[in-house]
């Protein structure tokens, strides 16, 4: 894939799913993986990134992975800051721009306009994905891969719907911009949907609902399902599994670990009926606290190609 002519935009890999399933850590691990293979990667998140900001010192990253860190960019898009930019672009006089931004009329309009912040977020995401250098020779950096560390499933869907809402309740330029964004973000040619879920009922139910909504509303299928924090029992062979016996006299730790693992294994078998996409398993490990070798290891487990 690397030797083909540049695509018109970066491939967008969307890590989506329930809150707290590990999307941010996995985004970082996947980004690091691709960056170390020589691709230019940007990770985009709409929430503040305590994990990235605190746990990974960018210093440490560039010492440990000098090659990769040159290709890896992390962008936090704050919707409020995006609106500041919109105003500053439209109003070149700084004093006037700040008067508008500080006026309660403007702030309230922004606060009560449904989908406005999401709309500008998507617009910026599309802009980041565009490969300006390949097209126009511009000097702004462009990326081979954009990893979208998406908000929790409900808000993720609401973000995608914002563009469509603009299209339906407005007319004129904003409606046209909404239609354009809607086309871009419902195109499987631009987006790889990679839901992340642990093997737990609630997270899986939410993942199925999200996948259904993506397919129904945006004609987007799942490209791979990332199963995070899985037990070794899930990936064990049947022969190994047969050697596991527990009864009332077993140590509580063993009973817990085996029962838990068997429950996960059952769920894993059920998933294929709901999401046909290939599964990628990331073992449950000790809590990730910024250990870069472990991050590298997670990236290796993930092993998701740039072009699915």
């Amino acid at each position: 894939m690397d030797h083909q002519a540049p695509q018109p935009q970066a491939r967008i890999l969307v890590l989506c799913g329930k809150g707290g399933v590990g999307k941010t850590t996995l985004s970082l691990a996947l980004g690091l993986r691709h960056a170390s293979q020589g691709r230019r990667v940007v990770i985009v998140s709409s929430h503040p990134l305590p994990e990235l900001g605190i746990a990974v010192s960018l210093d440490g990253l560039s010492r440990r992975f000098p090659e990769a860190s040159r290709n890896l960019f992390v962008v936090h898009l704050d919707p409020r800051e995006l609106l500041v930019e919109v105003v500053e672009r439209a109003v070149p006089v700084p004093l006037v721009a700040s008067t508008i931004l500080n006026s309660s009329i403007f702030q309230n309009l922004v606060e009560i306009s449904p989908g406005l912040k999401e709309f500008y977020f998507l617009a910026r995401l599309q802009q980041l994905a565009e490969r300006k250098r390949a097209i126009s020779g511009a000097s702004t950096p462009d990326y081979d891969i954009l990893i979208w560390d998406a908000p929790a499933s409900g808000h993720f869907l609401a973000t995608l719907r914002a563009a469509r809402a603009f299209e339906t309740y407005l007319t004129g330029p904003l409606a046209a911009a909404g239609a354009n964004l809607d086309r871009f973000f419902s195109s499987a040619a631009n987006m790889s949907i990679l839901p992340v879920s642990p093997l737990e009922e609630m997270a899986l139910t939410e993942t199925f609902e999200m996948a259904d909504a993506l397919s129904r509303e945006f004609q987007l299928g799942c490209d791979a399902l990332i199963l995070n924090s899985v037990s070794p029992v899930v990936t064990a062979s049947d022969a190994d599994l047969a050697t596991l016996h527990i009864d009332d006299s077993s140590a509580p730790a063993l009973r817990f670990a085996v029962n838990r693992g068997l429950a996960e294994r059952e769920l894993c078998a059920e998933i294929r009926h709901r999401i046909a996409a290939p599964q990628v398993s990331v073992p449950r490990i000790r809590h990730w606290d910024g250990d870069l070798d472990l991050l590298d290891q997670i990236g290796e487990w993930l092993n998701i190609p740039a072009a699915l």
Binding site: V86, V87, A90, V91, V96, T99, I100, S103, I105, F106, L109, V110, I112, S113, L116, F166, Y169, L170, T171, G172, P173, L174, A175
Partner: peptide, 18 residues
């Protein structure tokens, strides 16, 4: 002034609808 500017920036249509 603020409304006029807001309409300019955010779009007349959006502001009026809201």
């Amino acid at each position: 002034d603020i409304y006029a500017k807001a309409e300019e920036i955010l779009g007349v249509n959006l502001v009026r609808q809201v």
